[in-house]
């Protein structure tokens, strides 16, 4: 090998190694800086729900639950929508498909802070004045068992809260999920699809029995991608969640997520509080890692079963 090639290869390797270095660096830094909190509170930090800077007592439970609830709501709302959008984009004729695809891609390009602003000034009043009273009074959901959990004790809502955050997140992750799903649906061999149509299947049946089965891995990885984004999204949630350091009391109650707590408190925090915030960051990091590893595990396992080498 030519000598310049060896040098070139080394430089390239160094660039690529930066990925490993950064990943390890972030993990190590968060561990080091959160060690004080872990020593102080022990593992019970995970299920303690206090947050009192005056007493220097901190717990992670409300933040973890809030993160899981907003993510769950966002997925619940966006999965069916993303699936249908992806389906429509695959089946639509070319002249319609291309502009629609580009619009959906542009939706992904809007910065999250603009989503947040829109949520704060448009969606919050809408939820407060129309959606919540509609669910509560017109549909009378509050009288059903569990209704008070859904809609709050006294049926009053400020418009802020988990459901509002979930709606915004759903809108944000929708383009990501549908882009992945669309690419997978396109890979369904046309022969398979057309033979199903040829047998007289309706579009619903082709979708359910052929396209969805063939593309199940893509659907699931699309969902994982959306979930990863929803977990760590900060700004859009921060604007509409209400920032209350309490465990979720209902869909319309205010609360917080890990990312929102970090954004709100980190710049002013010192000492043990800062360490506790780093610990929250570590928890979020592990959640995000866990998702990635799970996705990869799922893809390799199903890949092996299908005889693909992935």
């Amino acid at each position: 090998m030519h000598q310049s090639d060896t040098i070139f290869r080394t430089i390239c390797l160094a660039g690529a190694m930066l990925a490993l270095l950064l990943t390890a660096g972030i993990l190590i830094q968060l561990c080091i800086h959160s060690s004080e909190a872990w020593q102080h509170f022990g593992i019970s930090f995970l299920w303690s729900s206090e947050w009192d800077p005056g007493m220097d007592a901190y717990g992670a439970l409300p933040h973890i639950l809030g993160t899981l609830l907003t993510t769950g709501l966002a997925l619940l709302l966006s999965i069916p929508l993303a699936f249908a959008v992806a389906l429509l984009l695959t089946e639509a004729p070319d002249w319609l498909n291309r502009p629609l695809s580009q619009c959906v891609d542009l939706l992904a390009a809007i910065p999250s802070v603009i989503y947040g602003m829109w949520g704060l000034f448009v969606l919050v009043p809408l939820m407060q004045n129309h959606v919540q009273p509609f669910l509560n009074k017109t549909l009378g959901l509050a009288n059903l068992p569990g209704g008070s959990w859904l809609l709050g004790e006294d049926g009053y809502s400020s418009g802020f809260g988990f459901l509002t955050a979930g709606v915004i997140l759903a809108l944000m992750v929708l383009p990501y999920m549908s882009a992945v799903m669309r690419d997978v649906f396109r890979m369904t061999p046309p022969m398979l699809r057309e033979s199903a149509y040829g047998l007289g299947c309706t579009r619903l049946e082709v979708t359910r029995d052929v396209v969805a089965r063939y593309g199940i891995r893509g659907i699931i990885s699309g969902i994982f991608i959306g979930m990863g984004r929803a977990l760590g999204e900060t700004m859009a949630v921060l604007f509409v969640i209400g920032n209350l350091m309490e465990s979720p009391a209902g869909l319309f109650s205010c609360g917080t997520t890990i990312a929102a707590t970090l954004a709100n408190n980190f710049a002013e925090a010192t000492g043990l509080q800062q360490s506790a915030l780093f610990a929250l960051g570590l928890i979020l990091l592990l959640m995000s890692f866990g998702m990635q590893i799970l996705t990869r595990y799922y893809l390799t396992r199903t890949g092996a079963r299908r005889g693909e080498n992935n």
């Binding site: 950064l22 972030i26 830094q29 968060l30 980190f266 979020l284």
Partner: peptide, 18 residues
């Protein structure tokens, strides 16, 4: 891939510490 999926606020934490 992990870095791409990483919540961006954690990058902020990392650079703060660094």
């Amino acid at each position: 891939n992990v870095l791409m999926g990483l919540p961006s606020i954690l990058v902020g934490l990392f650079v703060y510490a660094l």
